[in-house]
């Protein structure tokens, strides 16, 4: 697997139909008035991977996310999710794709008039009306526990939660339909390092167990090193490179070099190395994997 430096101005080709591609973006163009945010942007997300999306502030990471999940209609281009064309779809058809993904918005976007448990149940009630109340409550209960919230969080309202708890509650809601694909918009922004690390390992373990594909927008270098299988770099209005971090480091692209080799990037790399060594040490001592503890953390 080698990193691909995107060729400039690739013509919008037809999205390949491939079961291993969960998301396929071709020739995407987004424009707000005079300002062009994306042009000829191509991106593939493979099944079962965690793809990190990085880029400077204002390079349109969130706009890309919104284009994929259908909140923003691009000026041109094609977006395919699970092999289904997403642009210009009927609402009823789009629902079938929508129930296979979960989205974690940057600020949680929990419904403020509903409790955490009710928030988690909203997608379930919307798509599976026949589920009985006991099962609904039980599902909400274990999703809340799985996302690492304490047992007293269920009946609370979002305004009563701290920032980190709100993120976890929002993750519980994003996971409520057991999605195959998870969109995370800066999941660790605003969390303390302990909370952020716990969130990282939570996502990693959920991905391993549930076989999730994760589309992750982040500024957090630690998150990139810790959990991302591949990283896509957005610059100059398109995805300039996709690959593992060592592959990206081998590229001669000024922004990438500055990003990963800046003081913060080097610290994060060192931290990731130490973590790796610790993990290997633990494995060599034949201790059982710490997946469960992490997930509850």
């Amino acid at each position: 697997m080698t990193a691909i430096l995107a060729k400039p101005a690739v013509p919008a080709s037809v999205a390949p139909h491939d079961d291993d591609m969960v998301i396929c973006v071709r020739g995407l163009r987004n424009q707000f008035g005079e300002q062009v945010v994306h042009e000829h942007l191509d991106l593939d997300v493979r099944r079962g991977e965690i793809l990190g999306v990085v880029g400077g502030s204002g390079t349109g990471k969130s706009v890309l996310l919104r284009s994929i999940i259908g909140l923003q209609t691009p000026s041109a281009g094609e977006v395919t999710v699970f092999g289904e064309q997403m642009l210009g779809r009927e609402e009823t058809e789009a629902r079938n794709v929508r129930r296979r993904w979960g989205v974690l918005f940057q600020n949680g976007a929990l419904f403020s008039t509903l409790t955490v448990a009710e928030n988690v149940q909203v997608p379930l009630r919307e798509y599976y009306r026949r589920l009985d109340a006991t099962l609904l409550d039980e599902i909400a209960g274990y999703k809340i526990a799985m996302s690492g919230l304490g047992p007293e969080a269920g009946p609370k309202y979002p305004s009563e939660l701290s920032g980190g708890m709100r993120k976890r509650a929002a993750l519980a809601r994003a996971l409520s339909l057991d999605p195959e694909l998870l969109f995370l918009d800066e999941p660790t922004a605003g969390l303390d390092p302990i909370g952020a690390a716990a969130f990282d390992s939570l996502i990693k373990s959920l991905k391993d167990i549930l076989g999730l594909t994760v589309f992750l927008i982040t500024h957090d270098l630690d998150t990139l090193y810790a959990i991302c299988d591949r990283v896509a770099v957005i610059a100059d209005r398109k995805v300039v490179a996709v690959g593992t971090i060592p592959e990206l480091l081998a590229l001669d692209q000024p922004w990438i070099q500055e990003y990963f080799n800046g003081p913060r990037g080097r610290t994060a790399a060192k931290g990731a190395e130490t973590l790796h060594e610790e993990a290997e040490e633990r494995a060599s001592r034949a201790a059982p994997p710490a997946v469960q503890a992490d997930a509850r953390g």
Binding site: D137, K143, M146, P151, A153, I209, G211, A295
Partner: peptide, 22 residues
């Protein structure tokens, strides 16, 4: 193996979580 892990995970999440207010 995967199903067993999933079962373990769900069992670990089976805590007395309050869902509704008193």
């Amino acid at each position: 193996a995967n199903t067993a892990r999933l079962l373990e995970q769900v069992a670990a999440a089976d805590q007395p979580v309050k869902v509704r207010p008193d």
